[in-house]
Design a protein around this nucleic acid. Structure first.
Length: 271
DNA sequence: ATGGCAACCAATGGTTGA
């Protein structure tokens, strides 16, 4: 793949997920980051724009095919791929009546095709409440969908903003987060349920260090103080996990001009 | 005691996010 900048490189795949917090407000930053991290597949969340308003031209110019599930003002997800996309599906099965644009998947036609789902899991606050119930229901639907995929025994990846802090050491101060929808026992149990199905958290498998984060609040100088949380994850099927080489959190994105409050997390897979 | 920060839509403030 010449686009990797290494003519001798003939395979593998770099896949990133990043909550951009408005693709319109962030476009110059997004384009610069995408060029820098140079991934084959990118999952974007919180586009905050309708499908037709997605900046297709600018993103396609970087060599990406785009599958977009947009929505006005809120949510919105996109799947970008330098390989052709097939079987594009928007929304999770069982989403009937759910008008929130939080999921898009496609078959990435790499040498070995990989199915990828790009997701923006509900925040769930305040908990308890309707929003928390919606979050847990959404996670159940995601697990049901993953179960169906696992039966195919093919490589697949569910990547996105999960809005779940998996472990105490994935935040700067668990005392602050313990009663938050991102860390409550039911949220963590639902995340563990995904892992018990046989999915692998790429970060935990390839790195696993405590106090490495993907989100820092805009408020209170959280970035400068190191007050972050790890909530953006890539979950890999066994066939994808077998190929996991490394994971990198692109923290540089948080100190750029007009940054998102999230940064990309990147997994590299071998052939 | 409150707002803090950023983006959005709509409207000169309210809502959402995490």
């Amino acid at each position: 793949m010449a686009h990797r900048g290494n003519p001798a490189y003939t395979g593998g795949m770099k896949i990133a997920t990043w909550n951009v917090n408005s693709i319109k407000a962030r476009l110059p930053t997004v384009l610069e980051v995408l060029k820098t991290i140079d991934c084959d597949v990118v999952c974007l969340q919180e586009l905050k724009c309708e499908t037709d308003a997605f900046p297709y031209l600018e993103i396609e110019e970087l060599g990406y095919n785009c599958a977009v599930n947009g929505q006005k003002t809120y949510n919105g997800v996109a799947l970008l791929s330098k390989f052709p996309l097939e079987d594009i599906q928007k929304g999770l099965p069982g989403d009937d009546g759910d008008d929130q644009a939080r999921y898009v998947e496609a078959l990435i036609m790499a040498d070995t095709p990989v199915r990828v789902g790009a997701l923006y899991l509900p925040n769930g606050n305040p908990a308890p409440g309707d929003k928390y119930t919606y979050k847990l229901g959404w996670m159940d639907r995601l697990a049901a969908h993953a179960r169906g995929w696992l039966k195919q025994e093919e490589p697949f990846i569910l990547a996105g903003d999960y809005n779940v802090i998996p472990r105490d050491e994935d935040c700067w101060d668990i005392a602050v987060w313990r009663d938050d929808a991102l860390a409550l026992p039911d949220s963590r149990a639902a995340y563990r349920q995904l892992k018990w199905l046989g999915l692998t958290d790429a970060y935990e498998a390839a790195d696993g260090r405590a106090h490495e984060y993907t989100f820092w609040d805009y408020q209170g100088g959280a970035w400068q103080k190191g007050h972050g949380i790890r909530i953006d994850h890539l979950l890999l099927s066994p066939q994808a996990a077998d190929r996991l080489e490394s994971v990198d959190i692109f923290k540089k994105a948080r100190e750029m001009e007009k940054p998102s409050d999230h940064v990309p997390i990147i997994a590299e897979l071998s052939d």
